[in-house]
Design a protein around this nucleic acid. Structure first.
Lengths: 223, 223
DNA sequence: GTCTATAACGGGATAGAC
DNA sequence: GTCTATCCCGTTATAGAC
């Protein structure tokens, strides 16, 4: 404990750089510069680069997932015996991760870019991390969504949840902001509300599995 | 023209590797192995690694964007003076890029992973590529969507289009498949139809900008 | 726990023969 | 247009002093 927590300084620096340049695009030497520590310190505290990634990821995701489950519990409790409100379930899933952007002042933008990136880096390390951290979450939310949407099959709910995750992670990366600076992108509570509105309406769309043919008029010429 | 198109073999090999390991995670030497060519051949044909990325990206995206505009033209023509059908506009945007997965047999899966990755790698090169290739597309589709959805402001349409792009690119990366192998993910025409159903319903949600307070009942205790 | 020094290797880029 | 050989730098990881 001589310096004020070298380990956390390293994690924060890595978080910043991973979010900006990706995992493969960041060298440990970049991290040492950013953190103001020595190269060997990283190996002492983490051992390998992969382990550092794990530390960066879990430090943030664990409280997020805990909060997700709390909010889901609350939504289910509020509904009593009935199915929970769809908006409340989606908010339980989306809110904790979006809130980070505001809660951790300064580092929020960094983290959200990082998490967005993670979702599209199918490295083996990342894959294992995701499985470890999301299995329980996914099962719990899947079950809740099935109760909200009795007309949809499980497979379709899984698919729509994936679309939701995609919209969320893309919003977190916020490439949009850099491509179209003239349209400022919403953040925090606004972003959450917009995402919930968007995805709730989408989840409530009639099953696309049931009616395979969206264009019956095209068959008019036949038979 | 001695070997059957060294240049294209290099591009294809790079596409495969970029999609699997990302841009920073792929070395030119990896590309030479995969393509069965020499290291110097890459520098001869492309000059730099960045230029190779440009070549990989544009080879596929240019036909996609051309087809997008064709389909949008068709949708607008079919509607005459009226606003084009929302589903048709979304299909024009999503279909060409999803079709690649089927059209380029074998390489389709590779490409879709690549494009999904691109969307979350805010490298400077990638950013410039996106701007070059998407500016016209975005303007055209924005205009069409504004006609479809007169109750939504421009900023909100931009935001919802970003959510759509996120859902699409995440579906293309298909991390889902690797995390939850027990729920097979839809592809090709099925994926397209599901995405169109999902996003069309979402676009038609009432404006989230207008009604900031989604929980009026919470104010019941007051006043 | 933190440093310096270095091992052992792979990276992109280039020169020049053919 | 394609090769070999090489430059020079950055990479992760480790050994060992303090």
């Amino acid at each position: 404990m001589s310096t004020p927590d070298t380990k956390n300084r390293i994690i924060s620096a890595a978080e910043t750089l991973f979010s900006q340049h990706g995992f493969a695009g960041t060298s440990l030497r970049n991290v040492t510069s950013e953190a103001g520590v020595n190269l060997a310190a990283i190996h002492y505290h983490f051992g390998t680069k992969d382990a550092l990634l794990r530390a960066v990821f879990t430090r943030r995701i664990e409280p997020v997932n805990q909060r997700r489950l709390e909010m889901l519990d609350a939504a289910e409790a509020a509904a009593g015996d009935r199915a929970p409100e769809l908006e409340a379930v989606l908010e339980a899933f989306l809110s904790p991760i979006i809130d980070l952007k505001r809660d951790i002042e300064g580092e929020g933008i960094v983290w959200s870019r990082f998490i967005g990136r993670i979702y599209s880096e199918p490295t083996e390390v990342v894959e294992n991390l995701m499985r470890e951290q999301f299995d329980e979450i996914l099962q719990r939310f899947l079950h809740a969504l099935e109760r909200c949407l009795p007309d949809l099959g499980e497979a379709e709910i899984v698919e729509r949840l994936q679309f939701t995750i995609g919209a969320m992670s893309h919003a977190l990366v916020d490439l949009h902001q850099r491509l179209m600076p003239d349209y400022p992108s919403a953040t925090g509570a606004d972003l959450l509300q917009h995402l919930v509105t968007f995805t709730a309406a989408a989840f409530r769309a009639p099953s696309a599995y049931a009616c395979q043919d969206r264009h019956p008029e095209r068959r008019a010429s036949a038979s």
